[in-house]
Write a protein that binds this DNA or RNA. Sequence first.
DNA 1: AACATCATGGTACGGTCGTATCACGAAAAC
DNA 2: GTTTTCGTGATACGACCGTACCATGATGTT
Lengths: 204, 204
Amino acid sequence: MPKRVDHAERRTQIAEALVRVAGRRGLHAVGMRDVAAEAGVSLRLVQYYFETKEKLLLYGLQHLAVRFGERVTARARSAGTAPGPRATVESLLLTSLPTDEESRAFHLVYTSYAVLSVTEPALAAQPFLQQPGAAEDVLTDLLSQAAAAGLTTPDLDPRLEASSLLALSAGLGTSILVGHRTPDSALTVLHHHLDRIFAGPERD
Amino acid sequence: MPKRVDHAERRTQIAEALVRVAGRRGLHAVGMRDVAAEAGVSLRLVQYYFETKEKLLLYGLQHLAVRFGERVTARARSAGTAPGPRATVESLLLTSLPTDEESRAFHLVYTSYAVLSVTEPALAAQPFLQQPGAAEDVLTDLLSQAAAAGLTTPDLDPRLEASSLLALSAGLGTSILVGHRTPDSALTVLHHHLDRIFAGPERD
DNA sequence: AACATCATGGTACGGTCGTATCACGAAAAC
DNA sequence: GTTTTCGTGATACGACCGTACCATGATGTT
């Protein structure tokens, strides 16, 4: 067998090029030629590693979801050793906010995918768009633990609060994205909401 | 002068066709030929009343914003005579949720526009995308009045709560849109949040 | 050394999209 | 009644996009 290149690595390289150019010019405006140019390869290679554009998009979204998961856990770890429930919750939510340029691009592309999935069944059927469901489970667990430890407002409904927090973060995120709100003001809103949930003296 | 047709009416007709097809197949998939076919006119006519596609999109978004405003006020009026602040707030927020098919299409198209505006400065510069800002002002006023009347939790920050409510509704809206949540569960979350704000015995 | 196979480049094809052009009927103005 | 202008249709053009096709180094295998 000849040259043998690492396909997974190459696909990742191209997928990240896709995400970059989509974050810059919008997902609707990315063509295979743009992705090829951004990745520094020829159009033919993009075709070679992803036969069709749809597969490229699908892989791009999948890659984005994975990277997002890594971001969350990385941020959660760097939050310090044995962080309190509130700090954990906060770091989880803050990670999904488009604060720096990278997370901005991330949020934009992910939202674009979500909007596309409404009218394209092939996208909606993909599992990674259901990641919010998983996040809700994790959040619900965290809130349950906090409630059991007496750190929260009494009579707290963990799942309901988790839904509320996620929807709020998502809304704040898109607000920042479209320029209706600054990251700081979003942080204020989020902190205020968390203050209502966590009654204890814990602070980030 | 010859036949003299009502331009405004014709433009509205075409713009609504645009919104319909965009709600069905996604804004990214809408071409001028689709709009023409949906409106029952020739491609040339779409060009005639809107010279360029960009102007058509702009007018479509504007029309959408206007219709949305009408929806809000209509819903607010039909909420009953002299509705309490909470009922007014609730009706305002519920109107922006994609519950029925029409509001679903509305929400989808509006979100598509918002996502587009991130990467297309021409769209971001348009004033109608700042309607959320106006909504926040209205909400802030309503909450201030309610607070002054003693209907709310003490020490309420009206502007902060208005921001929070709008972001929450937006997040819930997109959740419904992409199929992550049912309208009912969104209602539950919203009601719960409102319960935290409005302390009085008032109920919808 | 000959060969099979992977990786890559270049390029052409069919389709679609936004836009421009040409043409014509109809009605108001003179 | 002629002329001018508005409304409308049909169609053509140039660009771009996704995909397919053909060619050719490079590199293992036999």
